[in-house]
């Protein structure tokens, strides 16, 4: 009796603590969906399926890191999917043309960084709105990918390249390992470095941050460059998984990334959000996708369900303004 009430109390305490986390609701959603899927399907909780989810989630999760930075400053990056495709096809093209794998990957990553940097420069220094700049970059990068490939996939890649999308280390899929490393780095940068704190400050109040002497324009420039880099990294994984450079890869990926960030508790107005929340958001979307597939729900219906879940999650977590007396 005494024992159970004590454990009960500590459970309550833990729950209370958990409930103050900014990503508490998506976490609950993730756990719920997870439990439901385990209950209604036979093959959800298998090693191969969980690995599969991990692989699927990793690409969106990595893109969502850059998106988190952008949204934390009150901006957005719509170019992520196209930049991913362009970096991926260039990497593939270089490899197919005989350039060593490591050099091809470096060029691909550098390209992502440069494209993101162009976005950043236009937003920070030319004072153009992030939505417009990245929308334009979205179509430009996609166009370049199609021009470069002539619209056809590029195959014939170095077999060693398969490691990034299909390989594993001690039985853990490489994309999952890369994702974990990226999230650890992003977590440390956002929470334990001046740069990370300045990202939050810039999004929390741009003008106050600027007047207090924070280099807000440099922050904006850098976060879009980072987003370009994470997009290119996702490009490495997807190109490796498909073992070909696909100019049409990643269409509408920006939407999944935005959904993950917003589900993770971030505010589109900036200043509020966490990197762990984004990971939870990406996982929630991942298990939902996978589970609905396993149950055999029509993909068209899946879209509707995902949209509704995003609306509900954001509605519940929106701070309602208290009515004034």
């Amino acid at each position: 009796m005494t024992n159970s009430s004590v454990s009960n109390g500590s459970f309550k305490d833990t729950f209370k603590k958990l409930s103050t986390l900014p990503f508490f609701l998506p976490l609950v959603g993730f756990v719920l969906v997870f439990i439901i899927m385990v209950a209604v399907t036979d093959n959800f909780l298998t090693y191969s399926n969980l690995s599969n989810i991990g692989r699927q989630v990793s690409i969106n999760a990595i893109i969502a890191v850059g998106m988190t930075f952008a949204i934390l400053t009150g901006g957005i990056d719509l170019a992520v999917g196209s930049v991913m495709a362009l970096s991926g096809t260039i990497m593939a093209g270089l490899m197919a043309g005989g350039i060593p794998m490591s050099a091809a990957i470096l060029v691909g990553l550098a390209l992502g960084l440069v494209l993101g940097g162009i976005n950043g420069a236009l937003i920070a220094y030319a004072k153009m709105p992030p939505f417009i700049v990245t929308l334009a970059m979205m179509t430009i990068a996609r166009g370049l990918a199609l021009i470069y490939t002539g619209g056809y996939p590029i195959a014939g890649l170095d077999q060693a390249f398969a490691f990034f999308g299909r390989g594993d280390v001690f039985g853990i899929e490489t994309p999952i390992i890369i994702t974990i490393i990226i999230y650890v780095i992003a977590y440390i940068v956002l929470n334990h470095t001046p740069f990370g704190r300045h990202v939050y400050a810039t999004g929390g109040n741009y003008e106050a941050s600027r007047l207090s002497g924070i280099k807000v324009n440099r922050i904006l420039f850098l976060i879009y460059a980072i987003s370009g880099l994470t997009s290119a990294l996702a490009g490495v994984i997807i190109t490796s998984r498909l073992m070909s450079g696909q100019p049409n890869a990643g269409v509408a990926f920006e939407m999944d990334a935005i959904a993950a960030v917003v589900l993770g508790g971030a505010a589109m107005s900036g200043g509020k959000g966490t990197i762990i929340g984004t990971l939870v958001g990406a996982l929630l979307l991942g298990v939902l996708n996978n589970g609905l597939n396993l149950i055999g729900i029509n993909p068209y219906v899946q879209n509707v369900i995902k949209g509704i879940i995003i609306l509900i999650a954001v509605y519940v977590s929106t701070e309602k303004k208290k009515a004034r007396s």
Binding site: R197, H198, A201, G204, N205, E207, A208, G271
Partner: peptide, 17 residues
């Protein structure tokens, strides 16, 4: 509007720069 980040803590507002 220009001095504080209203939704942030006292600590962050002091240490931010």
């Amino acid at each position: 509007a220009e001095g504080l980040i209203l939704s942030f803590s006292v600590q962050t507002n002091i240490s931010m720069n």
